[in-house]
Design a protein around this nucleic acid. Sequence first.
DNA 1: CGGTCCGTTGAGAAGTCTCAATACAAGTGG
DNA 2: CCACTTGTATTGAGACTTCTCAACGGACCG
Lengths: 230, 230
Amino acid sequence: MSYCDTCVIRNQAICSALTTEELSALNAIGRRRDLEPGESLMWEGDDSLLVANVIDGVLKLSTGTEDGREQIVGVVYPSDFIGRPFGATSSQNVTALTNSRVCIFSRTDFDAFASEHPALEHKLLKRTLSELDRTRRWLLLLGRKNAEEKIATFLLEMAERLGAGGSDEWESPISFDLPFSRQQVGDILGLTIETVSRQMTKLKKEGVIDLPSRRAVVILDRQSLEDHAG
Amino acid sequence: MSYCDTCVIRNQAICSALTTEELSALNAIGRRRDLEPGESLMWEGDDSLLVANVIDGVLKLSTGTEDGREQIVGVVYPSDFIGRPFGATSSQNVTALTNSRVCIFSRTDFDAFASEHPALEHKLLKRTLSELDRTRRWLLLLGRKNAEEKIATFLLEMAERLGAGGSDEWESPISFDLPFSRQQVGDILGLTIETVSRQMTKLKKEGVIDLPSRRAVVILDRQSLEDHAG
DNA sequence: CGGTCCGTTGAGAAGTCTCAATACAAGTGG
DNA sequence: CCACTTGTATTGAGACTTCTCAACGGACCG
């Protein structure tokens, strides 16, 4: 009996490239692990010993400077892939933001398995190419946008990933709970916590969004938010 | 007679995954093209019609905002791969910075060829994973480093890619010519041309680097430059 | 009730940008 | 050979954005 049989991400993750038989071979080299918020799965600079699929939860990928400044370089959701196959060291920290469940493989086991299953590598390649596109778009945000544009862009991306709106997907309002603290939003956007707070308050005062509680966001005027995003 | 037989990047580019026979099949669907500085190969938002290998030269990948701000999101050198396989639209501009030569494929032809040659996809996957790591490191630079640290980090990376030093690779001085104007350095680092100029002048006055001509850089004190890089 | 965590708000400092002037190098035509 | 133009880089002064430091507020918990 394989964990994979009942896995909720069976058809979304890279596993969807595999037949039932192949999947049971993969299952044999993997195991599940639960993580609590704040718990880390791997650290920047460490040997790359693990790779994993996210089954449930939200995790951050981050790097930092020696003097403690942090930058979040990626956020992963269920069915996303984590870790650095075919590489000696992992180049970022991976930390759970919510209660999370992941499906872990030894990196060397996974490398060997992937090398024998081109369809799996093909899925992983497509995923990696998409992630590279997404990351490059983030470079524009960090390099050339001001605080207001950063916040607006960020909220729109969150809405797309997490949002629940009305009947029409373009219809306001769209509401969701951020899986991030203000500090973490700052670490994503390259801003301080105070600047994040001020810009969100400003958008609220302008009637573009509402902030009913600490983590909750409601987008009242999507068009206006897009105008603010630059 | 195939172009590939005499290709200088035959053993560095993803082509190195292929046998001689496979390579001649790839050669059949590719063609060479020369580009002048400033000439573009593809544009952000266009249909993804082409992919290519860089044979010679340096090219930039860039995106911009509607109001004309630009961010360089990648720089490619000989043997690097360009374009977005398995995707409908290209997400950045690709523009030659120097006289360049590329080996072009129709994206759909390449997709089909790659899907039948797992070793090629494997090479491309490894390359894409490395590029993603590099891009994520750039997020830290753009999000959390100040102008001085950005310039120092940038010069060190350029030295690594382009540098010619003394007998010992760690020995100063290391000298190279930047393939970028000051404006382009600004577009890479998310700074204005004036800030780039001021910070470089500052490092020169401190004796860390020398700037014998517009494009030339000499790293006089590598350790000090690393200290400035944060 | 007091403590802790997190977010908000305020005031001043610092860094970067904007705008303007100047400098320098290379090329052109007289 | 010398003005003149053009493109690029440097330098300066002031404006603006964001950061830093500090105080305050609200929610949750013992």
